[in-house]
Amino acid sequence: MFAANDPVQVLSGAAALQPLADGSAQRVRGTALQYTVLSHTLQLDATQLRFAGNRYPPEIQARYLQLPPSLPRRVVNLASQLAAQDPPFPYDRVLRVQAYLRAFPYTLDTPLPGPDQDAVDYYLFDARAGFCSYAASAMTVLLRAEGIPARVVSGYAMGQYDFERGAYRVPASAAHAWVEVYFPGYGWVEFEPTAAFPAPVYPEPPSANRQPSPTPHPQSAAQTQKTPWGWLLGAVLLGAAVFAALRRWRIPPDRSPAAQAARLYAALRRELTVAGVDVPAHLTPWETLRRAEPHLQAYPRLATALRLAVQVYIHAAYRRTPPSAAAVRAAQRAWARAWGQRLLLRLRRRRKPAE
């Protein structure tokens, strides 16, 4: 049955969540005519994505950078040309590829490629028009050719909003394919290479649109030749004093609720890893919870602490407002109360080789 983005909980109706075989997501299964599902969506801006970096987990690289050995060389060359026009941020390269493909006309009448012709090569250089599956496949291949993990996703577009019913109407014709790109620290993020569908918008923060400060007037040659020795000596002495002070005083850690939520979640992940629970870095917080829960059935306090930590961390990482201090304190108290079960989980891990 239908659900938006990543479903995490069924609130009503004869439905249930079923994890996919690889544990990367869940689907909604059931026969109800009416049901309510709570889904997890990302709220990101351009700065977060731009500075996410390119330190991809090995398991992500192994699976989502694969390309067929028979990929035509001109497809790889096109990917290099598009990447060379932008700064070296993966996010800007993704936008460049998306904009390039959104210039292709949308049509359902594109003839099929020849029996021995690569479909992406055919779309990019011969047909130069097509529907969503062509565009999504082309974007995925172009990004992978530049070392950016990407995958094709199929599902349904949002459809049309029915104001009388107060709901979206999603017909069979809304079946669609788009692209998700992996960003370290945030997971899979949606992009739309098909011109007939609106592209997701990740806003630039206001500071990114500021006008550059005016360039100061150049100094004369006589001024630049003078060395302000007194000022230079004062700067050296001041720097030495600051360095000495920093050696004696430690800068206090960030104690904001968002920072505390992030530290608590990181501590729980480390605890699970030490105890032998496989929670790779590429998993989202909800995926980490689903992966760990079967191992924590005998440790209810630790399971509760993990659930609360995931909730406040998601609030801190993906919402515009930070989590409340009370919610973070509740998660920290649950983590402290679970100290005995944390110890038991570690001891169980250490006893396994002897057993």
Rank of each mutant, 00 (worst) to 15 (best):
A129P: 00
A259R: 03
Y64D: 13
R337H: 13
T321E: 15
D22T: 01
P90R: 04
L95T: 12
L11S: 08
A135H: 15
C132M: 07
R290H: 13
P294V: 13
A281I: 07
L289A: 14
P171F: 06
A177Y: 00
P252G: 04
S80D: 14
P184D: 09
E204V: 10
E146M: 13
G185A: 08
G159P: 06
R319S: 14
G230Y: 07
L95D: 05
R144F: 02
A103Y: 00
T107K: 05
V37H: 02
I314C: 12
Q81Y: 04
G155R: 03
A331F: 06
E355S: 11
G187H: 01
T110P: 02
Q117P: 01
R55S: 15
W229H: 14
Q48N: 07
Q26T: 09
A336W: 13
F243S: 10
S137D: 14
A83G: 05
Y91I: 11
Q66L: 15
R169C: 02
V274I: 07
A267M: 07
G130E: 05
I148D: 03
Q61W: 07
T47N: 11
R269H: 09
A119Q: 12
E355I: 10
R301T: 09
V37Y: 04
R93H: 14
A135T: 03
S220N: 10
A334W: 04
P216F: 11
R247H: 13
L306M: 07
D126G: 02
G13Y: 10
Q160F: 08
L108W: 02
T194A: 05
V242N: 03
H282Q: 15
L20N: 06
A32W: 03
A331R: 04
G230E: 12
L143E: 06
A235E: 06
E146R: 15
G276P: 05
A305I: 00
A235N: 05
A330S: 13
P300F: 06
G185R: 10
L238A: 15
R350S: 08
V201Y: 12
I60V: 15
F2R: 11
M139T: 00
P300D: 10
A4H: 11
A172D: 13
A79M: 05
A145I: 00
V75I: 00
A25G: 11
A292Q: 03
S133D: 14
E271S: 12
A136K: 01
C132W: 08
V179N: 09
R73I: 00
A83F: 08
R128T: 03
Q81I: 13
R151Y: 04
R29N: 10
T194G: 01
T47P: 01
H315S: 13
R307Y: 06
P280G: 05
A172K: 11
D162Q: 08
W231F: 09
W188P: 00
G185L: 09
P90T: 08
A196C: 00
R74V: 01
T47G: 11
A172M: 12
T321V: 15
A222D: 15
R269P: 00
Y35R: 03
W229C: 06
V274R: 07
L143H: 01
F2I: 13
W335P: 02
V8M: 03
P294M: 08
A222P: 00
G114E: 03
P19C: 00
A244P: 01
F104M: 03
A327Y: 05
V37T: 07
A46I: 07
P171R: 09
Q34P: 00
R102L: 01
P184Q: 07
V120D: 00
D126W: 06
P193Q: 02
A119V: 15
G185Q: 11
R74S: 05
